[in-house]
Amino acid sequence: MNAKSLILAAAVALGTTAAAHAEWTTVRIGTEGAYPPFNYVDSDGQLRGFDLDIARALCEQMNVTCEFVAQDWDGIIPGLVAGRYDAIIASMSITPERLEQVDFSDKYYQTPARFAARRGSDITDTSPEAMAGRVIGAQSSTVSANFLEDIYTSSEIRLYATQDEANLDLAAGRLDAVFADSIVLYEWLEKTDDGSCCEFVGDAYADEEYFGTGVGIALRKEDDDLREMFNAALAEILANGTYERINAEYFPFSIY
């Protein structure tokens, strides 16, 4: 028994799965499942959302089988680097910081970020000066969190594992505002009961240095072939109307 089979045997004994992927017949896709309407788990435990529909369309276009892996946001890039899955399709913005760790496909949508506050709050101006001393919540590890950390230095920033927890604390009055992707906030504010507590305040933010150049599919740096496959498939579904159809199912306007 050589060293290779020994380690493989140990890996199997540990309850782990090993798979070689020279020709990409199966692609494992990591997603969060806690970011409606882009990705979430429905009451039957199924992963759903815009990201998932786009992912399925891409897989069909690339003619590969896709398996979905739910992974908490905090560990989603480490999970990709460590090989738990081969691609992240989870509304991840393409930023210089992340590009140091992983590669990205072309963007598949782009939306700005916004603040939301409780209805009737006195927040009208969302500049760093006006928000000084206020408590702002965001999901950790996101472009919104990084932006707050760097720009809103005189506000108190609280970071949550999921956007849902931040929203819960805004509704409960622990936060003066939350800062997140505008569509995700829109979904919560307009389409849920507890979201009715709050409303958008201030302008939209899209500073490229922080919010990147859109949302892309994250891939390991060495998987250039897979990136090209995704880019080709993305161009194809944009051209043949599939993307437009999925977009229309979720939003009355184009988010590309």
């Binding site: 290779k4 380690i7 540990l14 309850g15 992927h21 560990g75 480490p78 680097v81 090989g83």
Partner: peptide, 27 residues
């Protein structure tokens, strides 16, 4: 959870490059 995965991948890359391995959160 994080370190074990990185370590395992580095070990596997030495003996069998291109192989991926998944440490489930249960394990």
């Amino acid at each position: 959870y994080f370190g074990g995965q990185i370590l395992l991948k580095e070990m596997l890359d030495v003996v069998a490059p291109g192989t991926t391995v998944e440490v489930s959160s249960f394990v």
